[in-house]
């Protein structure tokens, strides 16, 4: 058994594991954090995306053993109880959630993007979304949701200054 310590959704945890596991396996099977999904397990669909040390990463191909000391945020850590995150509200407002299977991954990617750069250009937003597959929405509502969220975020930043 191997063991590492890392922070997941703000909680410091020490986790034992066999060695071959990917981050997604640990999240889903060991920690019950099933928001990140298995869509392809080859890094293509983005359904397993979580935020690792501030970066959006596909967790299906990220070996867990490399994450000692890492800080991880999953969709479960995004909303504060009944208080949804701006991105989640924007996705609902824009009707960007159909089946919802791609949603957690996409929201986490946008979270990482806007955290680094709230003023990301449309091209940068599209670049982020290009790492995700969604079969339901045709992407337009997702892009619209990203823009709505961005507006809220920028407004909030301004008002807090």
């Amino acid at each position: 058994m191997n063991r590492i310590t890392l922070t997941i959704n703000g909680i410091k945890r020490t986790i034992e594991f066999e060695g071959h596991e990917m981050l997604l396996d640990i999240l889903r099977d060991k920690l019950g954090l099933t928001g990140a999904k298995h869509g392809c397990d080859t890094g293509t669909c983005g359904a397993c995306t979580v935020v690792v040390n501030g970066e959006a990463r596909t967790s299906c191909n990220l070996p867990f053993r490399m994450l000692d000391g890492a800080e991880i945020l999953t969709i479960e850590g995004l909303s504060k109880g009944k208080q949804l995150h701006i991105l989640q509200r924007a996705f609902i407002e824009a009707d960007a959630i159909q089946c919802g299977f791609c949603t957690p991954g996409i929201i986490m990617h946008l979270y990482a993007l806007f955290n680094k750069n709230p003023n990301a250009s449309d091209e940068e937003i599209k670049e982020a979304l290009s790492h995700h597959l969604c079969r339901c929405t045709g992407y337009t509502p997702i892009f619209e949701a990203a823009k709505i969220a961005q507006e809220y975020i920028i407004k909030k930043e301004r008002s807090s200054k």
């Binding site: 928001g35 995004l78 996705f91 609902i92 959630i97 089946c99 919802g100 957690p104």
Partner: peptide, 10 residues
């Protein structure tokens, strides 16, 4: 839809 937005939908 909130279940789906928060990753809690089973």
């Amino acid at each position: 839809v909130i279940e789906r937005a928060t990753g809690k939908a089973v």
